[in-house]
Design a protein around this nucleic acid. Structure first.
Lengths: 175, 175
DNA sequence: TCCGACCACTATCATATTGCAACCAGTTCT
DNA sequence: AGAACTGGTTGCAATATGATAGTGGTCGGA
């Protein structure tokens, strides 16, 4: 993870920013799990990131303009990590990776349902979700256009995930 | 780069396959540069990959079903690396990464022109390019639909790149 | 005011990965 | 035969990762 530029190729430069094992997972948790504090990212991720790695990635992503850190007024030590516009625009990459993974790898049902919805929703849904993130991370005035649906894309993704989890729990109890 | 699965999340699983600094660059060179031999990939890449890393990535990507290696009839030691359907379907991820990099990072003009065309062409052009790769890598019968344009998407990308390089050379000579 | 829970983050250290350079043996060209 | 080329491998130093424990500080309740 050195910061020397190997070439001016856009794919290479992007890989030098987010091309490691953890950066995109942190961004995924911020986007889809709305985790905004260090502790949330540390303990509520499926993959159990180590605290030093998380600290390093948050620092690096902040330096690179993907995230910004602001103080949490409720607690002097707490910081709130927010996505920048640049960070929000990483969504299509994550969406494509999720779609590819779901098609070709052994994805679990509950963790694949969001990918499925995002895939079916296509770029229109991505745009909707990105605009919701603008409101959430950049401020209420940062939206490009007014909401198009009463239930937000983020809420729909979350509801679908919870429905699968609830269904699995019921099936486990019944079986 | 261990192969232990950290979670069944599609994004995580995808990252475990191609989430390192080199795998996607190798795939990029195969896709856009049509490099099919070890030596081509080793010496004709912008980023100067080390031979042991290249050997490792080719092996790993082959094991994971992204590439296949076949013998080159013209030379007993030479192998030809081809993309599988799974590998071809990585194109949208690369296209999104290229688009993001071009918007937000200091991309050089000649290396950014392909990203620009791919971005402007959108998913329709990606599909066209993917179908061309099916013919090139899987065999003439593997196309999903007949070619839609007389000049292939791959040729258009290559031509645009060469035009920029030629333009730069002319400008250097003139200035 | 004291205590325990919580906060972001760091230190240490073993292991894994990376990257450079030299090297290899078989193959093809001349 | 000999040079040049083929796809690699080996050894080693530098770097990145990851598990665990610990830092100094904050907060809320008794």
């Amino acid at each position: 993870m050195s910061d020397a530029r190997r070439s001016g190729c856009p794919i290479n430069l992007t890989l030098e920013v987010v091309g490691d094992r953890w950066s995109l997972l942190v961004i995924r948790d911020i986007m889809f799990g709305n985790r905004r504090h260090f502790r949330e990212l540390l303990t509520q991720s499926e993959e159990r990131i180590a605290s030093n790695i998380l600290a390093d990635r948050l620092k690096r992503l902040t330096e690179q303009g993907i995230l910004v850190r602001t103080d949490d007024p409720s607690h002097k030590q707490k910081g709130i990590y927010s996505l920048t516009e640049q960070g929000i625009q990483l969504l299509p990459i994550l969406a494509q990776m999720a779609a590819w993974g779901r098609r070709h790898l052994p994805v679990t049902e509950e963790l694949g349902i969001r990918a499925q919805l995002l895939d079916e929703g296509g770029p229109a849904m991505w745009d909707e979700f990105m605009d919701e993130m603008r409101e959430l991370h950049l401020g209420p005035g940062a939206r490009l256009k007014p909401p198009t649906s009463t239930v937000s894309a983020g809420q729909r993704l979350q509801a679908a995930y919870e429905a699968v989890v609830a269904g699995k729990a019921a099936a486990a109890q019944a079986g």
